[in-house]
């Protein structure tokens, strides 16, 4: 993001021809790109600096964290990560988050991708209302009956309960993204496959699914991130053994004095994986997050 010298677009050139070249305008054109670059840098800093702060604190001793003069001038240490994996025993929580996230994503794909295909091809209009409904309902109003139900069948604290409830988060995403994706695929391809003797189900598996892989990847990535980040359901339905990362982190502050270094190290452990995914799958993540919003 160094200073960008922008070539004038065709329309800017046209405007220059029409209006007399006033000196004020010329000065503004030189000043404009520089100001814009500065503004963009300020925006980036505002969004990134707090994360940088968290990252730095994770590698500081608690003494360095509380000393303002050591904000940037400190000797990095891995002690906090030692505490998180040692005294706090975080490794099982990472496993729990991965198991629940992967489980909820796979089930959502298996149920959601064919459903999205049905919705897109047979134009089931009410289905979009269901996806919206899932977004509107407060999670707590589902948690109460789920808690009653899972208590009766002794499922509170099990992976099964966590995966089942996280599907509530992952499946609407998969259906919304995939329905939009299937609508964009030409129907002629499936019809050609059927004329060549394939069944409809066969055409879906052999022709449509391979073409839809980018969409499947998008929805799988987003579904996993949303399950990984989910806090509320595991807060009620997990126990000491099945606790996921967000719940484990929220327990950090319940002690009398806060171990800031350990807390920041734990926060880094939970946010860095999703940020790396966002970094490498940026195009997919953006497409998934904005899917449906721009259709008006």
């Amino acid at each position: 993001m160094t200073a960008t010298a922008q070539r004038p677009t065709r329309s800017e050139a046209a405007a220059a021809r029409v209006s007399p070249p006033a000196p004020r305008r010329r000065k503004k054109r030189l000043l404009g790109p520089t100001l814009r670059t500065i503004a963009i840098m300020v925006v980036v800093l505002l969004f990134v600096l707090p994360l940088g702060w968290m990252l730095m604190a994770a590698f500081k001793t608690n003494l360095d964290i509380v000393t303002p003069s050591r904000t940037f001038d400190f000797t990095p240490t891995l002690d906090n990560f030692g505490t998180v994996f040692g005294a706090q025993n975080f490794a099982p929580f990472i496993v729990n988050s991965v198991v629940v996230g992967v489980g909820a994503t796979i089930v959502a794909l298996v149920l959601g991708v064919p459903a999205a295909y049905g919705i897109a091809r047979f134009r089931i209009r009410n289905a979009t209302a269901f996806v919206l409904l899932a977004r509107v309902i407060p999670g707590v109003s589902l948690l109460i009956p789920w808690y009653f139900l899972f208590s009766q069948v002794q499922l509170v604290g099990t992976y099964t309960a966590l995966i089942l409830t996280h599907i509530f988060v992952t499946m609407p995403l998969v259906v919304a993204i995939m329905a939009g994706f299937f609508e964009g695929l030409p129907e002629e391809l499936e019809e050609a496959a059927q004329i060549d003797g394939s069944s409809r189900v066969g055409a879906f598996v052999r022709v449509v699914l391979p073409l839809a892989l980018p969409g499947v990847a998008t929805s799988a990535i987003l579904a996993f991130i949303f399950s990984w980040n989910n806090f509320l359901f595991a807060l009620v339905l997990s126990n000491q053994e099945t606790r996921t990362l967000p719940v484990a982190i929220s327990n950090f502050t319940s002690y009398a004095s806060v171990d800031w270094g350990g807390l920041m190290a734990a926060s880094v452990i939970i946010t860095v994986p999703v940020m790396l995914v966002a970094l490498f799958a940026q195009r997919y993540v953006v497409a998934g997050l904005t899917a449906g919003a721009t259709k008006g």
Binding site: V44, M54, P246, V285
Partner: peptide, 11 residues
């Protein structure tokens, strides 16, 4: 710009 959006809210 995407980073705050995907960061875990509790963290």
């Amino acid at each position: 710009i995407l980073l705050p959006l995907v960061a875990t809210p509790v963290a």
